[in-house]
Amino acid sequence: MPNNLKKLIEQSKKGNKRSQLKLYDSYCDAMFNVACRYLKNEEEAKDAMQESFLKAFLKLDTFKETISFGAWLKKIVINYCIDVLKQKKLETVSIENIPSEISNDDNDWKFETTITKQQIINAIENIPTKYSLVLKLYLIEGYDHIEISEILKIAIKTSRTQLRRGKLMLKEKLKTKMYEARY
């Protein structure tokens, strides 16, 4: 970790406002973009991001250098956003809509090369929150099932199941996309 960052964190621990603001300045844009992935309303995302910073400053003592400061912050932001979503209550999905799970390999993430990243992101947005959350945490944030289970407070098994179903839904969505594109 660069020395100046270390210094900023040390001073922020002591409650130094100037250092805290400097940390905010360096990470706010990235963290805002993280929050925007979970909260569609930008005003809401901004608030979540700022509150996460305040929360992070309060528990800076728990920050260990085994991970980067950005990754540590990101987790706080994501956790905060999930809490906001939970307060709004995640929509429930009826079982009928869930595609069957036959021959669904956990490690098979092969999609047509013609499908762009943006298309995938858009498709994820159109999947019920319960599944899109796991998809985002896994695909975009790069968390593993242990981390996802911690963040969403679900069992690892549940996280695996939801990801599998999420992936099927994603494939389904993108299939219609392809179909639409052809005509």
């Binding site: 092969k110 999609f111 090369t113 990243k117 995938i120 695909l139 975009i140």
Partner: peptide, 11 residues
């Protein structure tokens, strides 16, 4: 042609 979309999101 297919590709692993997990790599898309690496960066």
């Amino acid at each position: 042609m297919k590709r692993d979309i997990r790599e898309l999101f690496n960066d």
